[in-house]
Design a protein around this nucleic acid. Sequence first.
DNA 1: CTACACTAGTAACGCGTGTTAGTAACGCGC
DNA 2: GCGCGTTACTAACACGCGTTACTAGTGTAG
Lengths: 343, 343
Amino acid sequence: MRRKRVTSKDVAEKVGVSRTTVSLVLNNVRGIQISNETRRKVLETATEMNYVPNAAAQTLASSRTKAIGLVLTRTQHHIATDAFLPKIISGLLTTAKKQNIRILIDWVETEHHDSAYFELAHADRIDGMILSTPRLNDSALKALEGVDIPTVLLGRIAESNLPFVDVDNTKAAEKATSYLIGLGHKNIACIANAPSEYTSAPERVQGYSDALSRLKIPINESLIRYAEFDPESGYECMKSIMKNGDPFTAVFVASDNVAIGAKAALREANLRVPDDISLVGFDNIPWAEYSDPPLTTVQLPAESLAQTACTLILDLINGKSVNIKHQIMLDTELIIRKSCRPI
Amino acid sequence: MRRKRVTSKDVAEKVGVSRTTVSLVLNNVRGIQISNETRRKVLETATEMNYVPNAAAQTLASSRTKAIGLVLTRTQHHIATDAFLPKIISGLLTTAKKQNIRILIDWVETEHHDSAYFELAHADRIDGMILSTPRLNDSALKALEGVDIPTVLLGRIAESNLPFVDVDNTKAAEKATSYLIGLGHKNIACIANAPSEYTSAPERVQGYSDALSRLKIPINESLIRYAEFDPESGYECMKSIMKNGDPFTAVFVASDNVAIGAKAALREANLRVPDDISLVGFDNIPWAEYSDPPLTTVQLPAESLAQTACTLILDLINGKSVNIKHQIMLDTELIIRKSCRPI
DNA sequence: CTACACTAGTAACGCGTGTTAGTAACGCGC
DNA sequence: GCGCGTTACTAACACGCGTTACTAGTGTAG
C-alpha cells in the first residue's frame, strides 16, 4: 500500500537523462543550456509521477529551509487568550504563501529564553524568525543580535537594535486620551493592556500621560493599573481602581479584550457607559463594534503588522536592502463609536 | 562576525574520537559500548562548543522531521476571526514541546486542496498532520486516506475513516436546547456557528432538532440560520429571523462569537436578554462570562481537544496502538449563567 | 596455548538534493 | 583538416547526520 517515495533519480531514469538535468530543469536554473524537448519531457514526467522534492534534502544541499519561525514568548495562558494571534497568523500565512514559505510556530518558556532561541537559530530549521511581543527584561535579546539568522521583532524594544515592526503605541494612546480630554474629561483612569515588561504597555501608558501633561492635567498614579491581556484581569483592575476611591469620569483601557472585563466591573458597580463613565478601548476586536454601546477604540492593523513583518524578514533573508535600519511604525486610527460622551 | 556552524565532526575532532562515537553518545543509543570517560568528554565538549545538530541532516538521515503540521482550511477572513485558534495552538504547543516536536502551520486554499495536502505530505516536511475544521465537501479527504503520513482530524467527518478528535456536537447542542425547553420555551430559534459544509454546524443543528423532536415540539425551519463564524454574520442571521416574523422566546446560538452579533441585533430591536429573549451560546469564550448578562453556554474544551489530537498523532507516528480505530469524543458541559429565564 | 566472548570503538555507506567542473558532439570559418 | 566556440548535457562532490558492519585489543575458560 505504502507507495515508495518518488525521487529525482526516478524521474531522471524514466526520462532517460541524468539527475542533474532534472534538477536544473525543475529549478529553472538560468544561463544553462537544455533543449526545449528535454525540458518539456522532464516537466511532464515529474508531474505525471507526482514528484515532490524532499524538503530536508533541499535544505541540506541549499542551506535554505524555506520556513520562518514565529516565536511566542508568553505564558501558555496568555497565548490561549490572545485575541490577536489569529490575525497575526492569518497575515503571516497570506504573505508567506505567496513566496512558498512555511511558518513554524514555536513557544519559548520564560526560563529557557537563551538556549531556546539559540537552538532554533542553529538547528537551521528556519531561515529567519519573527519574535512576537518581546519583553523589556528579555535578557536573551542581546544574544539574539549576535546570532546569525535574520530576526524581526513584532513590537518595539527601545534598547535593541533589531529591526522591528510595530504601531506607534504612544501616539495612539495619546490620540485616544486626547479625545477624552476634548470631551471635557479630566479625571481619566487608565488600564494598560499587559504587565509593564511587555513594551507596548508602558508605551501606551506614556501616551496617556503625555496627553494629560500637554494640557497640564495632573497625573494621578492611583488611577493607573496594568492588566494581563484577558477580561478577568480587566475586571480586577477596574474594581481595584474603584475601590481606591479617587473619582474618575472616563477610562482608557489599552486593550479591548481587557475592556470586556472592565465593563463588567463598572456594570456591577451600577455605573453605566457612557452615561456615568466614558470608555475608550484599544485594538478594535470584532466584539467592539457589537458591544453595548459600541466601543470607541483604536484600530490596530494586526494583519498589516504581520504582513509587513513577514515581508521584511523575507527581504532580509534574501539579502535585499540589508544596510537600511528597518524600524517600521504603522499608523493607527481612532474609531469613534458610542461609548463616550461629553461631560 | 558570522560564526561558522559547529558540526558533529568538529566535536569529534576536538574530543579526539570518531564522528560515529559522538552521534552514538548524543543520541544515547542503547546496547552499545562506550566508556563513561569518553561519554562524559563528548557531552561536555558538545555543550561547550554550543553544538546543535542540523535539523535537515537529521531528517534526511533518520527520515524523521520532528515536526507536525497544523493545516487550516478556512478562508483568510475566517482564520483571522477565529476565536479558537489561540487555544488550539496553545494546546498543541504544550503537548508538542514535551516531546520536542515543532509545529508547522499551513493554510490550504479551497481551490488547491488536493495538490496542497499532497505536497505537504510528500515533501517530508512533517511526520504527521492535524487537519482543522474539515468540511463535508472536501473532496481531497479521500485522497488523504491514501497518503502515507498519519493524519488526525480536528472535527468529525462521518464519511471518513480517518482518526479524529472532536466534541459530541450533537449531544452538546441537545443538552443546551433541552435546557431551554426545560424552562418552558417552545419557540426556539437556532443560529448555527458556520456554513453547513463545516460538519460541526449541521451536527449542532441536529442536536437542536433532536431535543425538540424528543418532546414532540414541531421544528420550524424558518427559525434556523447558518452563520459564518463571526459576530457580523450573527447579527445578520438574527435580523433575518426577526424579519421573518415567526415568534420565538429563546435562541440557541451555536457559537459565542456569533452570539455577540446576535445579541446586538436583539438589542437593536429593543428585545432584552433574558427578559424578552433567552439566549444560550456555545464555546464559552472569555467574553461569555463578562457579558451582560453573563451568557449561559456550552463549555468547549479547546485546549484538551488540541492536546488529545497532538498526543494521538504522536502515538500514530511512533507506531503505538495503530490497530485501534481512533475516534475520540470529548465531553462538554453546559455552563448555566444568567442569560435565560423561565417563560 | 587456543578459542571465544566481550569492550570500545571506527570506516564507510546512504539519505536526496544543489551545484561546479568537465566532456562529447557538432557546426563553421579559414 | 584543424582550431574553436557553442550546445547539451553528465560525473562527481558536498551538505551533516544516523547506522551497520567490522576490527583491534583484552580478558577468560578449557
